[in-house]
Deep mutational scan, measured.
Amino acid sequence: KELVLVLYDYQEKSPRELTVKKGDILTLLNSTNKDWWKIEVNGRQGFVPAAYLKKL
């Protein structure tokens, strides 16, 4: 499993997105899109802007 660090808080703006908090370490599911990465948070899957995340 690949992990990502959340660099900035992000509030979901659609049902396909997820809310994340700065400092969270989460599972990366897909990073093929350069702008939006798919991650998992508490069993939910969704997208967060790639600029808000850093691969560990």
Rank of each mutant, 00 (worst) to 15 (best):
K1S: 15
K1R: 11
K1V: 14
K1I: 13
K1P: 14
E2L: 14
E2Y: 11
E2V: 09
E2G: 11
L3K: 08
L3T: 09
L3Q: 14
L3V: 12
L3F: 13
V4R: 00
V4P: 00
V4D: 00
L5Q: 07
L5G: 02
V6Q: 01
V6I: 04
L7I: 09
Y8F: 13
Y8S: 09
Y8T: 10
Y8E: 15
D9Y: 04
D9R: 03
D9L: 02
Y10V: 01
Y10K: 00
Y10G: 01
Q11K: 15
Q11V: 13
Q11T: 14
E12I: 12
K13E: 08
K13Y: 03
K13F: 05
K13G: 09
S14Q: 09
S14P: 09
S14G: 13
P15C: 06
P15Y: 10
P15N: 13
R16L: 13
R16D: 15
R16Y: 12
R16W: 14
E17R: 09
E17V: 04
E17A: 07
L18S: 05
L18Y: 03
T19W: 05
V20T: 03
V20Q: 00
V20H: 02
V20W: 01
K21R: 13
K21I: 09
K22G: 07
K22D: 02
G23M: 03
G23V: 00
D24Y: 06
D24G: 04
D24E: 15
D24P: 00
D24I: 04
I25P: 00
I25Y: 04
L26K: 02
L26D: 01
L26R: 08
L26P: 05
L26V: 11
T27I: 13
T27F: 14
T27N: 11
T27G: 08
L28N: 01
L28S: 02
L28Y: 02
L29V: 15
L29A: 04
L29N: 04
N30V: 09
N30C: 07
N30M: 09
S31C: 07
S31G: 14
T32E: 15
T32W: 09
T32A: 13
T32S: 12
N33R: 10
N33C: 07
N33D: 15
N33A: 10
D35N: 15
D35Y: 15
D35V: 14
D35M: 12
W36S: 04
W36R: 03
W36A: 03
W36D: 02
W36P: 01
W37H: 02
W37T: 02
K38M: 12
K38G: 06
K38E: 14
K38H: 12
I39Q: 00
E40G: 10
E40A: 09
V41I: 12
V41A: 15
V41R: 12
N42A: 11
N42H: 08
G43K: 08
G43T: 06
G43L: 05
G43A: 07
R44F: 13
R44W: 06
R44H: 15
R44C: 06
Q45Y: 10
G46V: 05
G46F: 05
G46S: 03
G46I: 05
F47I: 11
V48N: 00
A50P: 06
A50E: 03
A51D: 15
L53N: 00
L53I: 04
L53K: 00
K54V: 12
K54L: 15
K55N: 08
L56E: 03
L56R: 03
L56P: 02
